[in-house]
Amino acid sequence: MFSLSSFLDAFWPLTMAARYTLLVSGLGIALGLVIGAFVCVLALSKSRVWRTVAAVWVSYLRGVPMLVQLLVVFFLLPVIGIDVPAIVGAVVTTAIVASAYISEIWRGAIMALPKGQTEAAIAIGMRPRDSWTRIILPQAVALSIPQLINELILLVKASSLVSVVGVMEITRASQAQAGVTFRPLEAYLAAACLYLAINLCLAALGRWLEHRMAV
């Protein structure tokens, strides 16, 4: 039978573990934004070679399940002589996978701008650098905010997979809790509630930002 007290008891250890969920997904998206910006620049470059590099990067990272990528990175790092805690591998994998999606989000946002926006800048005699920093990027970034928030929500959920390599985040902690109390239903339900709470907050943040950015 469902035990309310063990359900409630599970929240304290899981909330502690949520720090790692937030760390992995938060750092993941932050680094993903940086790498994604580079990939996006390559994808929009005039050189065919750079465009191909970007296309392969995006296609590989979007084609391979995150769990598989996580294990590849986890076993690759020691082989190439990098001995770091599992959480570093988790953050690296998350960031790299996120970069593929983020670069596509930004590319899409930039391509979605009407051509006339840059034409007006060119016609007035603006330098390409100014038309990027003043006209294109401010609009593309605002346009991409809802999708970036959505990506962050996806990452929070995907971070449950790093439990597999032993990072003590929400899912791993709920497994531990279930193992100790023999109450898996309550432990996993508590985990689900915690994820839901985080994601509802992020969704609300997204709506607020979208509302603020809308001109």
Partner: peptide, 23 residues
Amino acid sequence: IELIRGTPFLVQLFLLYYGGPMI
């Protein structure tokens, strides 16, 4: 829809596979 979309697939599986027998 919101409940399912707000939680990770892995946790849903655990609930079903390990939590299911309890009910």
